[in-house]
């Protein structure tokens, strides 16, 4: 059963009740908790209720020419709570980083119903234990994020994407290496085969920032064979398919093309600069973790009564 708490105190109340009953809590729909609580444009920080979708947040920041530089797929359906809990990222992570680079503080409802804060609201905070990091990618297993504070960036003046087609992984490798060896500072460096002829690939580079910088980079990139103007539509196409779950590999960036070679023509999108490959089809085996015992102790400490789901891959 889906529960739809109206505010963080109701979230805490539901958890406290489940804790007493030692019952697993059902999936919470935080959609009613969707307010921007505080946007300080001059400080470039924002505090939100965690049920707001990323798209709605971006929409509210845009009039002040600011944004949270995280661009996961399906942002109009993705709550901030799920964004953080899943540590979800998108193509611009090559230029802007991931959730942990932008999150300043969280308020979390713990498994026993306590509301606690970690981190702060200022742009730099290194005092005390950085407990907040445990909730990033924690899949809601240690607590439910009810509020979050982020640091923001100015919206880029302009943004442009260019592509270069190639017909072998070896050629893709050379093109990617050329970009990495050049003075270019792309915000996106992807490799994909979405909508390509069988055996073909596209390397996509994106440039974000001041007009002068983007123009200069486009000229440089065309010298590397990036002459075709493009968009990030392949992202939308890839993530919008109802087909099988997406598999993810995280490898050394230099090994991305090797992994793709092993996929045998399967549809994929890869963050070539970060070493992340997403594909549909055969399942990958999660890497064994040497720190499983530490992870289990954390889980037992935060959620002794098993109210919250367990985390995968730990």
């Amino acid at each position: 059963m889906n529960l739809r708490p109206a505010n963080k105190d109701e979230v805490a109340g539901l958890l406290a009740a489940a804790h007493v009953k030692r019952a697993r809590i059902g999936r919470l729909d935080l959609g009613a908790m969707c307010r921007v609580l505080e946007h300080a444009p001059e400080d470039m920080t924002v505090t939100v209720e965690a049920g707001i979708t990323l798209a709605a947040l971006q929409q509210q920041l845009a009039p002040r020419r600011q944004w949270l530089p995280i661009d996961p797929p399906l942002a109009d359906r993705l709550s901030i709570s799920d964004l953080i809990s899943g540590n979800i990222s998108g193509p611009r992570r090559f230029g802007f980083g991931t959730v942990r680079d932008h999150l300043l503080g969280v308020q979390v409802a713990l498994a026993d119903g306590r509301l606690v804060r970690s981190g702060g609201k200022v742009v730099k905070n290194v005092a005390g234990f950085d407990v907040m990091k445990l909730f990033i990618g924690g899949e809601g297993s240690l607590g439910i994020i009810v509020e979050a504070t982020f640091k923001l960036l100015p919206l880029p003046e302009t943004e442009h994407f260019v592509a270069r087609r190639c017909d072998s992984v070896a050629e893709a490798r050379r093109i990617i290496d050329d970009v990495l060896d050049s003075p270019l500072t792309p915000s996106v460096l992807d490799l994909h085969n979405v909508g390509c002829e069988p055996g073909d690939f596209q390397v996509v580079a994106g440039f974000s920032g001041a007009y002068e910088d983007v123009d200069w980079q486009l000229a440089q990139a065309s010298g590397l064979g990036f002459i075709e103007s493009t968009t990030l539509d392949y992202e939308r196409v890839f993530w919008n398919q109802p087909a099988a779950t997406v598999q993810r590999h995280s490898v050394l960036p230099s090994r991305v093309t090797e992994v793709i070679g092993e996929l045998g023509g399967m549809e994929f999108v890869a963050r070539a600069g970060n070493g992340i490959v997403y594909h549909r089809g055969s399942t990958s085996t999660p890497a064994a973790s040497s720190i499983g015992a530490l992870a289990r102790r954390l889980k037992e400490t935060f959620d002794p009564n098993g109210v919250l789901p367990s985390i995968t891959g730990a």
Binding site: F129, S250, L252, I311, A314
Partner: peptide, 26 residues
């Protein structure tokens, strides 16, 4: 002796809790 976070020959996204992050600054 444990290794927290990305290993020298591993990818930057690591499954499980960000223990590396939690212990930095401790």
């Amino acid at each position: 002796v444990v290794w927290l976070g990305t290993t020298p020959d591993g990818g930057e996204d690591v499954d499980g809790y960000d223990l590396r992050g939690a212990a930095i600054g401790s």
